[in-house]
Design a protein around this nucleic acid. Structure first.
Lengths: 143, 143
DNA sequence: ATTCTAAGTTTACGTTTGTAGCCTTTTAAC
DNA sequence: GTTAAAAGGCTACAAACGTAAACTTAGAAT
């Protein structure tokens, strides 16, 4: 799998990627129909997005003749991690904790998810610093 | 404080907001200097971003005469929560857990942050479902 | 009162994004 | 073999973004 870190997927493209990831592989027809149903997009819109995704090598065309099959090149998990990292990179490091707290509260998580997070936190607690510094401006300060 | 949900802050604008949030309030001069040091931006660039932030009412101008003082209208915490929610809204609900796990692992968290997250998780565990459904396509399926 | 300068305002411009129409090949059907 | 319907490709176009130059006005200094 290609490194998702180097591919920036836009909001609209993200919708197409979700469909492809879920389907595993799909023809343009299937994607066009799915996007039409999901987002109300016209045929052209999905085609354009698909083309752009191929251009940025997030998706690849397979099969020698029409209709081609389209498959993801970047993984879902990696792409999501990259997007999340990107977001948190833009935010104050000091506030990451409370932002994560908000996300956890607002999302549905399975028992397994929660157990996993608890394990990670327990491990992380061992080496956690007393404070995290604000990294918004040069020099130390609190935001 | 204005509802951050209704204001979309772009990546560049986000940098300016961080500075304003951290400073609490600032003159354009202070912001221009900070952005120049932080991002290497020209005077004009910071001025443009500031204007756009005022336009979308994320920042307000204060004081009757020059130089004006600029203050945040939207809160940092709310804006971060809105941005995070926006991100997770675009992702498969089924993968939220592992994405959060990735974030927690890659970010620095204070002891207090961790304790807080643990408390939230303990509470959430009480009513957690066995599974979270994929919500990428119409109809049930797994991605 | 005049002038200089910092602060603020207008305009600009290439790129990306969201959204979509139209043209051109294939393949499938007759 | 000719034709119609898909699939694919090319073009378009307004809005948003990132980045910045040029112009104008209001205080500050003389």
């Amino acid at each position: 799998m290609k490194d998702a870190k180097n591919v920036t997927i836009t909001d609209s493209e993200w919708m197409v990627m979700r469909a492809i990831w879920t389907m595993g592989h799909a023809t343009s027809r299937e994607l066009i129909d799915a996007m039409n149903e999901l987002e109300g997009w016209s045929v052209s819109t999905t085609k354009t997005l698909l083309r752009r995704l191929i251009q940025k090598q997030a998706v690849a065309q397979h099969g020698g003749s029409r209709p081609f099959t389209y498959k993801p090149v970047v993984g879902e998990k990696e792409s999501m991690a990259a997007a999340a990292d990107d977001l948190f990179d833009h935010m104050c490091a000091m506030r990451a904790g409370s932002t994560i707290a908000g996300v956890i509260q607002s999302r549905e998580l399975s028992r397994a998810d929660i157990a996993n997070l608890q394990a990670i936190l327990a491990e992380k607690a061992k080496t956690a610093p007393e404070e995290v510094q604000c990294n918004c401006l040069p020099g130390d300060q609190t935001c």
